[in-house]
Amino acid sequence: MSTMNQAKVEKYRNDFLKEVTANVEEGEWVKMCMQCGVCAGSCPFGPYWEHPPQEIFMMIRAGKREEVLTSTSMWMCTSCYNCIARCPRELPITHIMHGLAHYADRLGLAPKNQPTRKFANLFWNNLTKKGRANELKLGIALYFMNGFIEGIKTALKMQKMGLNMFKTKRLSPMELLGGHGIKDTGGLHAILKKAREIELANAEKFNG
């Protein structure tokens, strides 16, 4: 258990709703849910979730901390915003899902092999390095996400498309060497660092 997680458990004891309210982006909305289930029914990925949003909200109220934070469910959100559009209480459900995922990640409770989570991490790391997505590196990283053999197989399978993309200049092999980026990478990193500080400070403020 991470120290941060340990600290949160001690701090909120069994009041998980309070913990979510304080620590999760838009988490203060969770208490406003009236369990109508329109979000659960509206989600295009609904059938693939273990727990739909409305159920997660109930689990939060019921204090099911472990189950919620280790759940793969909120990682399934593709930000289609159907739930937000239809929620009769105007809960920013999409944001809450991302908030919960992010919080679980920070606490080190997020499921390790959840594919969208892996994708998200790869994408983020790829993007933040130079401020531009390096599609070649991202593609390759995704091919090899599940191991070397798997990576080779996928690469071979995609070979033709890759070549076509090279030919039509949709992809440059030069990207492998560093690749293009924004002018002031340092500035971007400073912004991201500051953002993280603010976020942590906010979390601490709630905690305090």
């Binding site: 289930g37 329109v38 659960a40 029914g41 409305q54 159920e55 009769p88």
Partner: peptide, 24 residues
């Protein structure tokens, strides 16, 4: 059924509405 229905489609052949949602 405790559920706010999410959306309704139509079955073109029968004209029956199809209700989609989740029994909470």
């Amino acid at each position: 059924i405790k559920s706010k229905v999410a959306r309704i489609d139509e079955d073109k052949a029968s004209g029956n509405p199809i209700l989609h949602g989740v029994n909470t």
